[in-house]
Design a protein around this nucleic acid. Structure first.
Length: 577
RNA sequence: UGGGGGAUCGUCUAGUGGUAGGACGAUGGACUCUGGAUCCAUUAGCGGAGGUUCGACCCCUCCUCCCCCAGCCA
């Protein structure tokens, strides 16, 4: 047992697994599985399922299988198999040599179906899909028996064999379990086990033209692999009686299905169908668009697998429908990157600054620590010269209260460099826009310190104009404008809540020269901005950075509160009411 | 008006007969060459009504609200 299993079980599933172990159920074995259908990309909701299945196995000294549930050839593709494997691996989990496919069990599943027919517990039904629906009844009314329900075992065997042989057209017949058409649980009203689909399967080719349904196949897949705990989401709770029924009828190894609530996150959608809609409707650039909650999107955005695993750990496991605040996820990403990301200076919206009293051709190499949280990450040199760029937002000609940055006549510190004072503001005569600042520096403050005990409130980041690298920076905001994208009253759908400003591309950014040769996927903290990741579209000559998450911005909060205060002030009547 | 689940601070989650705890958020403060980080404090909760009990978030009854199920999807 690992250390974590000696701790108190932390959620209801672990409690049950611990209890099973105590009872020596399954001879003390724990074997779980993650069973994705290869019909799309994995998202952070899947990450929760992955972490639960692999995590619980690991906690109890067990194993977890990776199994592709490829029972529907009309929607599945090989392309997704590789992407899913990559994502699970990236998240940090290992299925060893236990990579399985439901399609590997097709022959065995067929044999089990024959057994069920022989027991008189399954029959071939000639009703059309529409008719089956009519016969099923409704939530409040019982269904009625199919006219084919009474077929003899021999006839069923013959028909089923001919279904497999390809004698019948798609949709003309199905194999059904014979259970109870009056069951209050609709899943028990003679569910379909096999449908005829003359479709090429990505692994079995044209060998089969009948394919098992989820309900029929899933429990048996689990059983065949010797799974002990089959962990899935709440929507399958209604299916558990059927899961149990098939296994009991066949008398085979019977895993315990346990359901938990799926992950929901504010400001995004987590369903393959909706994510596909965003991709196909070109609302995003693809499955790996950095705004997508897919694992490939999060990876490209700069999110670490550790952060995702931490999130899954911290949100817990329960049966309550819940929506996790995106702010928690962002907090966890910052927490991770704060410790690991090297600091670097980047000016996103450059404003030219000339240091009037600094020699024309002089260049100094300033020392800069790479990460104040971790001295082992060392330091680097940053060139300082007469002409610099600072952030446009870091200068205000008419500063509001508590503005600690550069102002006319004011003094600030340039990080790792010198104190500077603004002596002149140059503006565009037409627009009035500030185009350049003239400053003086204090040579006595090299490195950013002064010996006279002078206090400087503001510290700005900067780059040397002559040495800086040009870069494109992509800023991301939530994909949706509402915490719940589904909250739409106008009769349209979640896409009406798409955030038109979810992507902002800044093209004339300047970054410090140490970023020369950075490798795509590398993560940095841009000082005072946030965490950024070099995009896979980058090349040596064209740096492109994705903002993973911004830093906490206390000033933005103060300013917002100030503006709000002013507004309220305006609406107050003269006597203050 | 069938069946299956669920309900604890704004959010997520512990506790399951004996002082309702943590995390995120929010707010305030300390500190700081990142208005970052860190630290401290404050905020705020057992859906409702009865009952059992010395004592109920926990047990019982009733009620309310929310989610899932009528695919030959998974």
């Amino acid at each position: 047992m690992t250390e974590s299993s000696s701790k108190r079980p932390s959620d209801f599933i672990r409690h049950r697994v611990a209890e099973d172990l105590k009872q020596n159920k399954n001879e003390g074995r724990v074997l779980t599985r993650f069973p994705p259908e290869p019909n799309g990309y994995l998202h952070i909701g899947h990450a929760k399922a992955i972490c639960i299945n692999f995590g619980i196995a690991a906690d109890f000294g067990g194993l977890c299988n990776l199994r592709f549930d490829d029972t529907n050839p009309t929607r599945e593709e090989e392309e997704y198999v590789e992407a899913i494997k990559e994502d699970v691996r990236w998240l940090g989990w290992d299925w060893g040599d236990r990579l399985y496919y439901a399609s590997d069990y097709f022959e065995q599943l067929y044999e089990y179906a024959v057994q069920l027919i022989k027991k008189g517990r399954a029959y071939v039904c000639d009703l059309s899909a529409d008719q089956i629906r009519e016969y099923r009844g409704t939530l409040t009314q019982p269904g009625k028996d199919s006219p084919y329900r009474g077929r003899s075992v021999e006839e069923n065997l013959d028909l089923f064999k001919r279904m497999r042989a390809g004698e019948f057209k798609d949709g003309s017949r199905v194999l059904r379990a014979k259970i109870n058409m009056a069951s209050p649980n609709l899943n028990m009203r003679d569910p379909v086990m096999y449908r005829i689909l003359h479709a090429r399967h990505h692994r079995t080719g044209n060998r089969w033209c009948i394919y098992p349904t989820y309900d029929w196949a899933h429990g048996l897949e689990d059983s065949i692999e010797g799974i002990t705990h089959s962990l899935c989401d709440l929507e399958f709770e209604n299916h558990r009686p059927l899961y149990d029924w098939f296994l009991d009828q066949l008398g085979v190894h019977h895993p315990q299905q346990i359901e938990f609530a799926r992950l929901n996150l504010t400001y995004t959608v987590l369903s393959k169908r909706k994510l596909r809609e965003l991709v196909e409707g070109k609302h995003v650039s693809g499955w790996d668009d950095p705004r997508m909650p897919t694992l490939s999107g999060l990876r490209r955005r700069g999110c670490t697998p550790e952060a995702i695993r931490n999130l899954c750990e911290r949100i817990g496991v329960s049966k309550t429908d819940s929506v996790v605040d995106m702010a928690l996820f962002e907090h966890i990403i910052r927490e991770d990157l704060n410790k690991t990301a090297p600091r670097v200076m980047a000016v996103l919206r450059p404003l030219r600054v000339v240091i009037d009293n600094y020699p024309q051709d002089k260049v100094e190499e300033m020392d800069a620590e790479n990460n104040p949280e971790d001295s082992s990450m060392g330091s680097r040199k940053i060139p300082f010269s007469r002409v610099l760029y600072i952030e446009r937002d870091d200068f205000r000609e008419d500063p509001p209260k508590k503005f600690f940055r550069l102002t006319p006549g004011g003094e600030v510190r340039l990080k790792h460099a010198y104190y500077i004072k603004c002596v002149r503001v140059v503006k565009d005569k037409q627009t009035g826009e500030v185009t350049e600042l003239h400053c003086t520096y204090d040579p006595q403050t090299r490195g950013g310190w002064s010996s006279d005990g002078r206090k400087v409130r503001g510290t700005l980041h900067w780059v040397s104009a002559a040495h800086a690298l040009e870069a494109e920076v992509r800023l991301y905001e939530p994909l949706f404008i509402k915490p719940n994208p589904e909250d739409e009253e106008g009769g349209s759908d979640f896409k009406a809540n798409l955030n038109p400003n979810s992507l902002e591309k800044l093209t004339s950014c300047r970054v410090e020269p140490s970023l020369q040769g950075a490798v795509p996927g590398s993560r940095y903290q841009f000082l005072r901005h946030g965490y950024f990741c070099l995009d896979t579209d980058s090349s040596a000559g064209a740096l492109i950075f994705n903002r993973t998450v911004s830093l906490r911005d206390t000033w933005a909060k103060i300013e917002k509160a100030q503006k709000k205060g002013q507004k309220n002030q305006k609406f107050l009547s003269p006597d203050g009411q």
